[in-house]
Write a protein that binds this DNA or RNA. Structure first.
Lengths: 127, 127
DNA sequence: GCTTGAGCTGGAGTGCACTCCAACACCTAT
DNA sequence: ATAGGTGTTGGAGTGCACTCCAGCTCAAGC
């Protein structure tokens, strides 16, 4: 696979893939005779995993650190586990925040609905 | 209340409060004889609400738009409700993403734990 | 009456995470 | 053999959301 196909399959741009390589998120792939990047299939799974971390708010610097540990092999297993445990706690905190705000949205939406029903009755109190 | 106390009570910096006023998130408060901002208590609730939207990923531009609608009064009720409904859907999508990734973290953490148990047995497969 | 502390303005600077570009090289199909 | 598509590099630029700063005014306490 060359960079365009990886881009197409992952939804990232070729620029982003090169950028990820530059900062160490993705290991430098092999090159063909013309100097173009040639990726192997497993990188797709890795990129998907990185996207999961990204989508759930892990910072770039931490993803870079995790990627570096991974490249260093099995000896870093405990360190990586700790990073994932930390991220797990971060995810749970977000779940709580989101659940709370979801309930708030429901209350406010219901408020707006009744306000629209009885237009001008209660007035438009707050927020 | 002047700006320092609002900062203390909300956790935002005075700079951020002035910035929020500049972009229209917070209505310009009254001023005392010395030209200093004097806030009334209800602004605290509004700021807390803004922080909820912020913490759950509503973009600044959208918060500004919501704030603008709110200042325009009851006539904009329907538009605001629609914004909250949209944000509600956004929150639910995030909940799904987080729940999925939480499960993934659990699987990977368990993997790492068994790898640490049987060091060198299975090898350190992926991600 | 002077220091201390809080606040004021306008504008520059920061950190993050990309995103775009110019100028060039190479492969494939017509 | 030439046009079009895909790739290369290094470096500059973007958008978001603040954050910091210089140089100033003001008010209150000792």
């Amino acid at each position: 696979m060359q960079i365009g196909e990886v881009a197409r399959r992952t939804g990232l741009s070729a620029d982003t893939l090169r950028f990820y390589e530059k900062i160490g998120l993705i290991a430098p792939p092999a090159r063909d005779q013309a100097g173009r990047r040639v990726y192997d299939a497993p990188v797709l799974g890795w990129i998907r995993f990185l996207e999961q971390l990204n989508a759930t708010g892990m910072k770039q610097a931490d993803r870079v650190q995790y990627a570096a540990l991974r490249r260093q092999g099995p000896a870093t297993s405990a360190a990586r586990r700790q990073m994932l445990e930390r991220h797990r706690r971060h995810i749970q905190a977000q779940l709580e925040q989101l659940t709370e705000t979801l309930a708030l949205m429901d209350r406010k939406i219901a408020d707006y609905e009744s306000t629209e029903q009885a237009m001008g009755q209660t007035g438009d109190s707050d927020e």
